[in-house]
């Protein structure tokens, strides 16, 4: 078993099958500790996204147990899924933003669902948007921003409610080198503030000289490098 201390994510014998011959994950055992920054890599189609989607219950494993912050996901009812997703901030490769809404509205959405009051919400959004370097574009429509800026909006939205776990699914896939490094730096800052991060990427240069754990996923198996 791949493990760390004080686990916040734990997988036991997790399996995911789409058809008898399509097995993205097979008997995976893995533990990720609180405050860890883990790279998840592997070829395209190896199952990185599937792995992450199972962690926020967008997909169900075919077998095994997934425990997030002490909660067995299989025990969660449909009505309890929102509680899990408030603990897990997700950053997508395709950003998943509302392009005809402003930066403020996009980021505020995560706090609106929590029932934040107007003033409190505005303060928190401004603070986080400033943190990703977009305060001058707070009221711009997302469609008017560059790809790198859009990705930073997506990061702001994922972290504004201060989730203890952040899952980043190829967050730099559409960005140039400079923007990519900006995103990595941002993620490192979030990690330094205590968030546990799983950063999925197939870009090996991002973790070539890293001291962090790198998990390699291929043929349904996850190995540590």
């Amino acid at each position: 078993m791949l493990s760390g201390d004080q686990s916040v994510i734990e997988l036991r014998e997790v399996q995911k099958k789409y058809a008898p011959d399509i097995v993205p994950l097979e008997n995976v055992n893995l533990t990720i500790s609180k405050g860890e920054f883990v790279f998840l890599t592997g070829p395209s189609g190896a199952g990185k996204s599937t792995f992450l989607r199972m962690l926020y219950k967008a997909e169900e494993p075919t077998g095994g147990t997934i425990i997030i912050d002490g909660v067995d996901l299989s025990s969660l009812s449909k009505s309890q899924i929102p509680q899990l997703r408030r603990k897990v901030g997700v950053i997508f490769q395709d950003f998943k933003l509302l392009y005809h809404k402003s930066v403020f509205e996009n980021v505020a959405l995560s706090l609106e669902v929590l029932g934040f009051k107007k003033d409190q919400l505005a303060n928190r959004v401004r603070q986080v948007v400033e943190g990703v370097g977009l305060s001058s574009k707070l009221h711009r429509k997302v469609v008017q921003l560059s790809g790198g800026e859009q990705q930073r909006v997506a990061i702001a939205r994922a972290v504004v409610n201060r989730p203890p776990i952040i899952l980043a699914d190829e967050p730099t896939g559409n960005l140039d080198r400079k923007r990519t490094m900006e995103v990595v730096t941002l993620m490192e800052e979030l990690n330094a503030r205590g968030a546990t991060i799983i950063f999925a990427t197939h870009d090996e240069t991002l973790f070539k000289n890293t001291h962090r754990r790198v998990l390699y996923i291929k043929d349904g198996k996850i190995e540590e490098r």
Partner: peptide
């Protein structure tokens, strides 16, 4: 549809 999907991903309840 997109907004609803995003709302679900950021933890919106069915009531919301």
């Amino acid at each position: 549809q997109d907004e609803i999907e995003i709302m679900r991903l950021v933890g919106a309840t069915n009531g919301f």
